[in-house]
Computed example of a mutant assay.
Amino acid sequence: MLLLLARDMQWRWRRLVAGVLATALVLAVTLLLGALRETFLAETERTVAFFGGDVWVVPDDTAGPFTSNSPIEASVADDLRAQEGVDEATPVAIFRHAIEGIGEGFTDVSVIAYQPGGVVEPVLFDGRAPAATGETAVDERTGARMGDRITLAGDAFTVVGIMQGFTMYGGTPGILLTLEDAQRIAYGGAALASAAVVSGSPDDLPEGLIAQDPDQIGGDLRRPLAVVTGALGVLELVLWIVAAAIVGLLAYLSSLDRQRDVTVFKALGVSSSRLVVVVLAEGVVTAVLGAGVGLVLGVVLVPLFPIDVAVSATQAVVLLALAVVVGMLAGSLGIRRVLRADPARAFAALD
């Protein structure tokens, strides 16, 4: 039966190549959409992990510090730090803005400000974290280099550090400031903060404040992208259906072409089950070949994305595994014709 499959695919190689290429293109797009979706989710986890800490103290009437602009007194961190169950507490300010001085026009950025020497301990690719007013560390996606001068809200800052993968909201690069600089820009100089990041477990919170764990903070950061990630998931499903339809059409056409061959094999005593295996195997081979070519194509296209998208080994394995399932389901479209084939028709032309 394997020889029959090989000869059949050799005889119809043009159709096979066309089907594999069409399937590969669809699955490459499917792979990239899945990788993009995973990138958004990983970005959220990476951002929350950047701050460290065990809990965040935020206003009780807000969803979280990333989606709400309801500041708290920065001195709350001092009160929390005095509690027995708290090791350290750091006030942080989080807001979106735009910088000038890198290329032409403005560059949108996510601003993260903190008090140095506390819970937040940035890991940089080059240079150091800002430790004084007028200093900043920026993600490499801003295009800034060490020693560059950028302008934020009319204030000039010197780049003293470069970070990698420090993005939020679907690829918006982040920059670091000291809390004092951020308070001047975002709060008119008032001693306010978006939240307090706490290492430890506070026993008593000031009135109007609640504690959120990192999972809740991640949910707050991820919520603005929920529509996008949901849409990407729907598109993935639709493209899998399209891929199955392509492979299924090829399998069905092949079953039509082999109708006479099937009747002859049945007349010679070949069981229907063995013929069914050939039909299913052709669908699986087509889908797997399409997935393999699609995987290579997807990896080649990754650098075209404006954000850091990576195709993981897990995604590659899942793609190939789903391709096997899709190939079997698509190949099953031709099974009915195999089962209904009448061996007597093999001799119809001899009458």
Rank of each mutant, 00 (worst) to 15 (best):
Leu2Thr: 10
Ala6Ile: 04
Ala18Glu: 14
Ala28Ser: 14
Leu31Arg: 05
Gly34Met: 11
Glu45Gln: 12
Phe51Gln: 03
Phe51Thr: 14
Pro59Arg: 14
Asp61His: 12
Phe66Lys: 07
Ser70Tyr: 14
Thr90Leu: 07
His97Tyr: 05
Ile102Val: 15
Glu104Arg: 09
Thr107Lys: 09
Ala113Cys: 10
Tyr114Asn: 13
Gln115Trp: 02
Pro122Glu: 11
Val123Glu: 13
Thr133Ser: 12
Thr136Trp: 13
Val138Gly: 11
Asp139Leu: 03
Asp139Cys: 04
Asp139Phe: 03
Gly147Leu: 14
Ala156Ile: 09
Gln164Lys: 11
Thr172Val: 15
Pro173Leu: 03
Ile175His: 06
Leu177Gly: 02
Leu177Thr: 00
Glu180Gln: 15
Asp181Arg: 04
Arg184Glu: 06
Arg184Gln: 12
Arg184Ala: 14
Ala191Gln: 15
Ala195His: 04
Ala196Phe: 04
Gly200Phe: 07
Gly200Tyr: 00
Ser201Arg: 13
Asp203Ala: 12
Leu209Val: 05
Pro214Gly: 07
Arg222Glu: 14
Pro224His: 00
Gly230Glu: 05
Ala231Glu: 00
Leu239Ile: 01
Ala245Asp: 10
Ser255Ile: 07
Ser271Asn: 14
Ala281Lys: 10
Val285Asp: 08
Gly292Cys: 10
Val311His: 11
Thr314Ala: 14
Val318Arg: 11
Val325Glu: 13
Val326Ser: 15
Leu329Asp: 09
Ala330Met: 05
Gly334Gln: 04
Arg337Pro: 01
Asp342Thr: 01
